[in-house]
Design a protein around this nucleic acid. Structure first.
Lengths: 262, 262
DNA sequence: CGTCTTTTTGAATACTGTCAATTTAAGTGG
DNA sequence: CCACTTAAATTGACAGTATTCAAAAAGACG
C-alpha cells in the first residue's frame, strides 16, 4: 500500500481575499464576521450566546482559500490557529515513519480542525484540502484571552474539544469491533448525515477522498474498500460510479451496519 | 466473545474517608489538598502555576475509594466531576447494544477520566475499577468557574483535553494500521512507560486487565491476545505467567513494534 | 494523445476469528 | 480446610475474512 502519491507538494498558503462574483463590487475585506456568516448556525453552534458571537466578530477571523491538494498545516508545525471549514473538504492525517499515512479524519463545512494542537503547542496531525476549499483561521491565543471574560464562550470551546474526544471514541469502536462491510456502511451513513445537516442530499453525493484514503481511515486496504463498494452495489444498497454515490436503500444500509451493532 | 462476566453489579459509591495507618491519629478529612498530594507532579502537571494549585486546594476535592469491579460512573449518567486516579487502575468502556463492550482506555495513577462528558453533559463512557482504587472527584462546574479567574488554569484544562484527543489519535493509528503482534507490543510498551513514570519497574509488572479487556481495547479476540503473549514468550521477549509480565528483551519488543512503524 | 493515477477484479496467501476442549486459578460454602 | 463451582487463560483445529500481488480498465491531466 503505497501513499507516495498522497504526499502532495506543500504550496505556500497565502491570505487571499475572496473575490466577489461581480467585479463591480469592491473586493471583500480580509476579515470575516461570524454574525453574518452563512455557517453561523453550524460553526460554533453549541449554545453560543449572541454576545459571544459579537465577541468573535471582534477577532476578525482570517479567511483563506486553500487549493485542492495543498496543506493547511503540517504535523509538528507550531500551533497558532484553530481552523473552521467554510466550504470544501479536508483530511487530517498522521505520517508513519515508513512514509505511509494514517488518515484520522475528514472535515466538511462547519467543522473544526486543529484542536489536537492545544496539547503541546504543535499540530499532532496534518490537514490537507481534498478540493478547493475555504477556511476561517481562529487565532487560539486571542480566543482563550477572550474566553477569560466570557464563561459561556469558554464552555463552548471546552465542549467542542470534548466532542472531538467523543468522535474519536466512536471511531475507535468502529475500528475495534466492526468488519469491512460495517465500517464502510458506518462511514457512508455518517458522511450522509453530515452532508444532510449542511442542506445537501443525504442519499446522493460525491466523495472527495480516494479509496486509499477511506481505507486508511477505516483500517482496511484500498482493494477491500473497492470490493465492499462493489458488494453494496450488487446488493442494491447503492449505485456506485467511482466517487459518485447514490444510496438507493438507506434502511438496508443501516441494517448492514446494525447487523452487529444492533 | 461474551462479556457477561464483565458486567459487574453496580455497587453504590460512598464517600469514605481514608483511614490513617495508625488509629492513634484522627481520621483523615473528607477533603484532600493538591498541594500536599503525592501525585502533585503527575496529576495536573502541564505547567500549573503554584497559585493555581492553591486555587485547586480551595475546591477541596472529594476523595473516594472505589472497590475492584465497581463502577465509578456510567455511560449516559449526568456529568458532574472529572476524576483523577490517585491509586489503582480503571478501564473506560462503551456498551454495544448487543451487550458486548468496547474498552476505550485504561487509566493508572495520575491520569484523568471523564473529559468526554463535557461535550453533552453526560458521560460518553463508563469507568470501572480493575482493582481497589482511589480517586479524586473534581467538580467540573467549580473548576470552570475558577478557571475564569485564572488563564493559566484554563489553559491547563484545555491542554489536558487536547492531550486526550492526541492519545486517541495514537490509538486509532494503532487500530488502523497494525497487526496483532504490533498492537500488543505497542500496548505493553506504552503501559511500561506509564508505570515507569510512576516510579514502578518498566520491565516487570502485573496486568490488572483480562485478556478479553486487552483484546477489546486493541481490536482483537482474547484468544489472539493469548496466542500473541505465548509467541512473545517463545521469542524470548518476555516471561508471561498469566497476568504477571516480565519484559526480558525491551529492545527486541520495540523492534517487533517498529518492524512496521519504523 | 500519451502518461500517470485511480479503481476494479482475480487468485493465492496469511492472518485472525470461531468453536471447542483443557488447564489453572479464584471464589464459595459446608 | 477441602470439595465444589465459576471464571480466566491456553491451545488446537478449522473456517472465513482481509491482504497481497498482479493485471487490466477507466479516467484525469498536461
Amino acid at each position: 500500500m503505497s501513499f507516495a502519491t498522497l504526499q502532495v507538494p506543500v504550496a505556500p498558503i497565502r491570505f487571499v481575499p475572496i473575490q466577489p462574483e461581480s467585479g463591480a463590487r469592491a473586493p471583500t475585506a480580509l476579515k470575516t464576521h461570524c454574525s453574518s456568516c452563512h455557517l453561523r448556525e453550524l460553526c460554533l453552534p453549541c449554545g453560543l450566546e449572541p454576545e459571544d458571537v459579537t465577541h468573535l466578530d471582534h477577532l476578525g477571523f482570517g479567511r483563506r482559500r486553500v487549493k485542492s491538494g495543498s496543506t493547511l498545516y503540517h504535523e509538528g508545525s507550531s500551533f497558532k490557529f484553530i481552523f473552521a471549514v467554510r466550504s470544501g473538504t479536508f483530511k487530517s492525517s498522521l505520517a508513519l515513519s515508513d512514509g505511509r499515512e494514517q488518515v484520522s479524519g475528514f472535515h466538511v463545512a462547519g467543522e473544526l480542525m486543529g484542536l489536537d494542537g492545544v496539547a503541546h503547542g504543535t499540530h499532532a496531525s496534518s490537514s490537507i484540502a481534498l478540493e478547493d476549499s475555504e477556511i476561517c483561521a481562529i487565532p487560539y491565543t486571542q480566543l482563550t484571552e477572550m474566553s477569560e471574560g466570557s464563561s459561556s464562550l469558554q464552555r463552548s470551546v471546552s465542549r467542542l474539544m470534548s466532542r472531538e474526544i467523543v468522535r474519536e471514541h466512536t471511531l475507535m469502536l468502529l475500528l475495534g469491533s466492526m468488519n469491512a462491510d460495517e465500517r464502510l456502511a458506518a462511514f457512508l451513513l455518517n458522511l450522509s448525515q453530515r452532508l444532510k445537516s449542511l442542506g445537501y442530499s443525504a442519499s446522493e453525493f460525491h466523495l472527495r477522498m480516494s479509496r486509499a484514503e477511506i481505507g486508511s481511515y477505516l483500517g482496511m486496504t484500498l482493494e477491500t474498500v473497492s470490493r465492499t463498494f462493489s458488494s453494496f452495489q450488487q446488493r442494491h444498497l447503492m449505485e456506485v460510479d467511482k466517487r459518485h454515490i447514490c444510496i438507493t436503500d438507506m434502511d438496508g444500509l443501516k441494517r448492514t451496519f446494525e447487523t452487529r451493532m444492533r
